[in-house]
Write a protein that binds this DNA or RNA. Structure first.
Length: 522
DNA sequence: AGTGCAGTTGACTTT
DNA sequence: TAAAGTCAACTGCAC
């Protein structure tokens, strides 16, 4: 029987169990479905396609080298699979389990229904630490560890070329809503070759800078692993990254046994610590995706209903924020850097979210879509739980309202990052650069700046706006009904109480406890 | 040398 | 992953 290997966000032949098991079962048809419906979703953009397209080409080359190249089919999944079955006879389908957005969740349920109706077997195999139909959080970390420690699976020896000609649809040059520079200049690639280079440079050198460098947008591009696009597209599997970082860690630990070229102790400590920090974030990576796996509606509904409808939906405010024209230099510089390159460090992502939710007092959904379209490494399972957390709609985590001026002074004291992304402010003296609206007009004029024309005046007073948000939200949280619902959520789903709620057929939500608040930093 | 005081720092709590 | 507030300990300095 023909074995269809359905590639989704696992664009590799290394450590790909569905491919290996399918190859053992019969002739393989490697399939990628180009789904028009997906590319119309408001969290998808042309940027994602720009990164994805070369990865499909590389996957095709790898598969062709094994004996059978990738078949691309444009269309929705059920009709595409139905057409293949009608033409080719009985099929079996193999894929990795995917935790995506609500659209891909719905598509998977439609495919499953079709398979059941047609008597087609669809085998889904996990590829991360995420557990489908999780019953209880107890033991989750041990399970993650076990998954990550499983031996890596090499590519199949060879694929039998299919005995019939089967045409592959072309990869369009452009797909999805445009964002950022049309040519994608400044966007790092997400393909496997790049991922492997990044993995090696991180393990050998860059991990030394990780712990100290991840918070500032100036140092983070070099200090962070930068593996997120490869992980989001699955050109690297998370298990192979974890195993490589662990082996690097033991090499650094044993470095004093080496006969030649021992690194200074401080560098070794920094490298070991950096690798440890990165490994712990890889566990958090899966932990977060688990939340969306358990409760897909996190994409569209506030976790605590008391926050529903509380904030505004002002397209002008969201647009100013999305273009980097709020008049708050550090916010605008971060947003412009993100839109230009598709990447910014975690702390600045949190700050951008916080500013939209608190100072601009906007509902989290429109900003979430802009960020998703902008992130070169958009991962739904991390994105939506994070956006809700940073926007203060979980009801579980305390409010974290970032002060963009303080963040700028802490992480870009000399204004190097600000001047790079806001060249129109380059002449403003450093202390005033972070809040130019407080500067005397003649002083700005001397620097070649006029508020409103050269650079916007702030669209909100950041201090007053933050105060309003803090007072309003704490008043909501003090309400009796709020506490009751929050307590119910924790009581029913809290992971550390040792009680497990009954499992629903599709998915269920497991609330984080408060300690899970510190996730990706410090 | 001891005392009083303003300003600073850091740990801890509150929102 | 925050920021502001509180409080006690500490510092530098004038007298």
């Amino acid at each position: 029987m023909l074995q269809i290997v359905w590639f989704k966000r696992d664009l590799r032949v290394h450590n790909h169990r569905p491919l290996v098991e399918a190859a053992a079962a019969g002739p393989v048809l490697p399939l990628y479905i180009l789904e028009p419906g997906l590319w119309q979703q408001s969290d998808m953009s042309a940027r994602h396609w720009r990164v994805l397209r070369p990865c499909l080409e590389a996957l095709n080359a790898d598969l062709a080298a094994l004996g059978q190249g990738l078949i691309v089919r444009e269309g929705e999944a059920v009709p595409v699979l139905a057409a293949l079955k009608a033409r080719l006879g009985p099929i079996a389908i193999w894929s990795h389990e995917e935790t995506g957005n609500l659209w891909t969740y719905g598509r998977d349920r439609a495919v499953l229904a079709w398979c059941r109706a047609e008597g087609v077997i669809w085998r889904e195999i996990p590829q991360t630490g995420v557990v489908r139909r999780l019953r209880a959080r107890t033991g989750w970390a041990e399970g993650w560890d076990r998954r990550m420690s499983e031996p890596l699976v090499p590519p199949p020896r060879g694929l039998t070329p299919l005995p019939f000609a089967i045409p592959s649809d072309p990869l369009p040059p452009v797909l999805g809503v445009l964002i950022g520079p049309a040519d994608g200049a400044g966007e790092p690639p997400g393909d496997r070759a790049m991922g492997l280079r990044l993995l090696e440079s991180f393990a050998h050198r860059r991990a030394m800078r990780y712990s100290k460098g991840l918070s500032s947008p100036l140092t983070a591009p070099q200090a962070c692993s930068r593996l997120s696009p490869a992980l989001a597209l699955g050109t690297l599997s998370i298990a192979e990254v974890v195993q490589r970082l662990r082996s690097a860690q033991s090499l650094w630990r044993e470095a004093d046994l080496w006969q030649t070229d021992p690194a200074p102790p401080a560098q070794r400590r920094a490298a070991i610590g950096g690798l440890k920090g990165c490994l712990s974030r890889l566990a958090w990576h899966c932990h977060f995706i688990q939340k969306l796996e358990d409760q897909p509606t996190i994409e569209i509904t506030c976790l605590h209903p008391a926050f529903e409808g509380l904030r505004g939906t002002d397209p002008a405010r969201v647009a100013a924020w999305a273009k980097g024209e709020t008049g708050i230099p550090f916010i605008d510089a971060c947003m412009r850097a993100l839109v230009a390159t598709g990447w910014i460090n975690f702390r600045m992502r949190a700050m951008l979210c916080s500013f939209a939710a608190y100072q601009l007092w906007q509902d989290w959904r429109a900003p979430a879509h802009h960020l998703a379209r902008s992130f070169i490494d958009y991962e739904p399972g991390i994105h939506y739980p994070q956006v809700q957390m940073q926007s203060g709609t979980t009801g579980i985590n305390t409010l974290r309202i970032y002060n963009p001026v303080k963040q700028g002074l802490d992480h870009d004291p000399e204004g190097v990052f600000l001047r790079k992304w806001l060249p129109e402010l380059a002449g403003v003296p450093t202390p005033l650069l972070h809040e130019p609206w407080k500067a005397e007009t003649p002083l700005l004029k001397a620097a070649g700046v006029r508020l409103d024309s050269t650079y916007p005046r702030p669209i909100v007073d950041p201090e007053a706006a933050a105060r309003f948000a803090r007072e309003t939200l704490w008043a909501v949280r003090r309400g009796g009904a709020f506490r009751k619902v929050a307590a119910e959520v924790v009581e029913k789903h809290g992971s550390r109480k040792g009680k497990s709620a009954p499992v629903r057929e599709t998915a269920r939500w497991v609330a984080p406890d408060t300690r899970q608040a510190n996730l990706f930093e410090d």
